[in-house]
Design a protein around this nucleic acid. Structure first.
Lengths: 230, 230
DNA sequence: CGCTTAATTGAACATACTCAAAATTTGTGG
DNA sequence: CCACAAATTTTGAGTATGTTCAATTAAGCG
């Protein structure tokens, strides 16, 4: 079935500013798809035809470079939009979007979106706000990766994951399962270094590790470590 | 004197999409100021009241972290807009803008800009395009800094400077004078490492150094080195 | 259960950083 | 225009940090 934008549980996000008529138009124009964990939504280098909106799930956006290394650029979860930079800048996708878990993702054809943008200055302003915030995030991470030692980078990374995906009921365990390698790809560290650094944080009781589950025991301490950045 | 936007020599940039009436309004609303080399246009943490547009000159946008290290986030030159992310995202400036040389910079009050954005979907689309491109640049650099060795990073940095500021009449010498430290702040390398890496590129005849002047002798070679990224 | 993938550990190595000192360059006042 | 002071660049040596490679153990999945 095709979820309707009028009743979308992810309101308050980008399309929250649309009125009912506009939302109906959006519902009519869009499709939605199911992606299994690990499936690719689009590849770096593809030509963008659509905008994607995560109805439910978790998505990783990453970039590969020639030496085989991957950098995680960004994550998306419920209500987040992906694939809009390429669409707005007019080029190809500069990152690959992969489902981190089974996800339902709506797909809005480029012409429909562009038309809505032209007709709704509210939507335009909201999109600009979104882009600005993404830009600030990206620049923050640029600063982090280039200037900050490993332990602090992992601390920052864990806080970023908490902010993006939240926690389980205990309020401490990160509500996302990532591989060690993926955590390293966010922090800009080799997998082995990531493992050792996580172990160090564990020794010092900042966190507790249980397979892929990461529990933030000493949040204040982590924030303190992360404070070097910002 | 206040330069008029109708006759601005930097057309084709963001405000190029405005019609004559809108340009007249813009001229009426804006002011312009002269900044001496080294002067700060705004500081990280300041509350944004205006948008800035470089009429003529060169500006560096950088971020400082608590350990005293600086990261150059972006440059701006003739026709480029600065200070728009904070304005659009609603927060404070996240970077400090410093004139790299004597510069003339126009200043557009926030309300005037926001009104123009609301009234011109062309301007909105152009702004989104700009933001998207900045975002792509930033993510490209994120990838570079976290995954690529020093020599290649400096190569990429030199190409970035060429793209942004162009060259002198010889077509090879970068048309911008930066300190070694500032080059390092772009590449994410310590000053000493930057010096040694530049020296290595010099030994291998990729470049020629003459004080702050940097001549790109073997452009293809540099592009080749930079290709690891992309 | 067996196979594949991921996590972990160790050791050698590479890279870049720090600190300190010397050589240059730049800026400024006389 | 010169001299001096301040800032920047350069060089060297030692060190820290993180990477790589290889081997082992554990976990995930059909």
């Amino acid at each position: 079935m095709n979820h309707t934008c009028e009743d979308c549980k992810n309101e308050g996000q980008l399309f929250g500013c649309l009125n009912d008529t506009e939302k109906r138009q959006l519902t009519a124009a869009k499709g939605n798809n199911f992606y299994k964990k690990g499936q690719v939504i689009f590849y770096e280098g593809n030509h963008p035809q659509s905008l994607f909106c995560v109805y439910e799930g978790k998505v990783k956006l990453s970039k590969l470079c020639e030496n085989g290394k991957e950098t995680v650029m960004r994550f998306a979860t419920n209500g987040d939009i992906i694939g809009y930079r390429a669409l707005l800048s007019g080029g190809v996708y500069k990152a690959t979007a992969t489902a981190l878990e089974d996800s339902v993702i709506c797909q809005i054809p480029k012409p429909a979106f562009m038309e809505m943008l032209t007709n709704s200055s509210d939507l335009s302003l909201a999109t600009m706000k979104l882009l600005s915030e993404d830009l600030l995030d990206s620049e923050k991470r640029l600063n982090m990766v280039s200037q900050i030692p490993g332990l602090e980078r992992i601390a920052i990374t864990l806080l970023l994951l908490k902010k993006k995906f939240g926690t389980e009921e205990d309020g401490k365990t990160l509500a996302v399962n990532l591989r060690r390698r993926e955590i390293g790809d966010i922090a800009g560290l080799a997998t082995e270094t990531t493992i050792r650094t996580l172990a160090k944080l564990c020794d010092q009781n900042y966190i507790e590790l249980n397979q892929k589950k990461i529990k933030l025991l000493n949040l204040d301490g982590l924030v303190q470590l992360a404070r070097i950045a910002d």
